[in-house]
């Protein structure tokens, strides 16, 4: 059993509270028309934060789906900053600066899983000791890429951790319409890798599972599939109305298992957390997200940014399109 230390657990709660505070601020900013679509983090904090804390940011890669960035504080403040840029639709949002080992969000669900395996494989070919942890959802597990990536990881013994964040809902589709398997973890059998299901609201359980999978990967034994079962406490996104399909009684029951409330009460009982700490953390989180929003809002955008970074060097045709675009921009000024 590898339990996180008191210091780690306290830092995890800081990251969880920060993530939720920032997510709620972003929700409000979206409602005010200031930023783009937001996928709230509520209910996912323990899993994402504990997984990040079981990794070594200097060596291990995180391959997100799309809901995770606010909970990846461990990988540096740049992740939040780029996430706000990404959210408002600034192209630079997709460039998480080196050497941060986090890929940008992936909207085409499960396509990030073959990338994660390729990256893990490439690292072993270059004797890089890190591992790759890829997040995906219960819905993504229905994609072919999940099976194709899991299969390749199994064959290669690639140092990759597939972390299925089972929040019970793929927008409005519940898990029983997603799979007839007894669990998502059970699908590991098809890949010849271990599959473990953990309580995704319990940081200790997630940390231990990811830590174990990481040790396994680093010792050359290959991939692990972890299913973290939790409950999506909010909407799928700001564009969604879950009251149309989430049974109120299920949601009420899930709220009694709020991962932040669980860890906070544990840490308070141990004398590691109090109301003053809570309010300091919330306040710092708001300052950080507002600063990130301000930075994003005022980030310059070149008039021909539209055409940048498509290819390494403009072809004659693209160069001509760039001139035409710039002339058009001039003309409309």
């Amino acid at each position: 059993m590898t339990r996180p230390s008191d210091g780690q657990r306290r830092q995890m709660l800081v990251d969880m509270v920060s993530a939720r505070t920032q997510s709620q601020r972003m929700w409000n900013l979206q409602r005010q028309g200031q930023i783009g679509t937001v996928a709230p983090i509520d209910g996912h904090e323990a899993t994402i934060v504990a997984a990040a804390h079981a990794l070594d940011p200097a060596h291990d890669w995180v391959v997100p789906q799309y809901r995770e960035p606010l909970a990846l504080r461990r990988y540096g403040p740049e992740v939040l900053e780029q996430f706000l840029l990404y959210n408002i639709g600034h192209p630079a949002g997709g460039h998480i600066p080196a050497p941060i080992r986090v890929l940008p969000n992936q909207i085409s669900l499960a396509t990030q899983l073959p990338h994660a395996v390729g990256l893990a494989w490439g690292m072993t070919l270059q004797d890089d000791p890190g591992v790759v942890l890829a997040f995906f959802g219960d819905g993504s597990s229905s994609q072919g890429d999940f099976y194709e990536a899991g299969n390749l990881a199994g064959v290669l013994k690639a140092p990759v951790i597939f972390l299925c964040v089972n929040n019970q809902w793929a927008i409005s589709t519940p898990v029983h319409l997603q799979t007839a398997a007894e669990s998502f973890a059970a699908k590991a059998a098809a890949f010849g890798i271990p599959g473990v299901k953990v309580d995704g609201n319990d940081v200790d359980a997630v940390y231990e599972a990811v830590h174990g999978a990481r040790e396994r990967a680093r010792s050359g034994l290959g991939a692990t599939l972890i299913e973290a079962a939790l409950y999506r406490l909010g909407a799928h996104t700001t564009a969604d109305d879950p009251t149309r399909y989430v049974p109120a009684e299920d949601l009420a029951a899930a709220r009694r298992n709020d991962p932040i409330a669980i860890l906070r009460s544990r840490l308070e009982a141990e004398g590691l957390w109090d109301a003053a700490t809570q309010s300091e953390v919330e306040s710092a989180a708001l300052t950080a997200v507002d600063a990130a929003h301000e930075r994003a809002r005022t980030m310059p955008l070149a008039p021909d940014a539209l055409l940048d970074h498509c290819v390494s060097e403009d072809s004659p045709r693209l160069a001509r399109q760039r001139l035409a675009l710039l002339a058009e921009v001039e003309g409309t000024r």
């Binding site: 890929l103 396509t111 899983l113 073959p114 990338h115 994660a116 395996v117 390729g118 990256l119 893990a120 494989w121 490439g122 690292m123 070919l125 270059q126 890089d128 790759v132 072919g144 890429d145 194709e148 990536a149 299969n151 390749l152 064959v155």
Partner: peptide, 28 residues
């Protein structure tokens, strides 16, 4: 065999894995 790899029969994962290999700094 480290540089010349007989992959499982999946065009999707062959193409998909090239993305990760390139991110790792290789030339697939």
């Amino acid at each position: 065999e480290r540089r010349v790899y007989d992959s499982p029969l999946s065009e999707g994962v062959i193409a998909g894995a090239t993305v990760g290999l390139a991110i790792a700094g290789l030339v697939p």
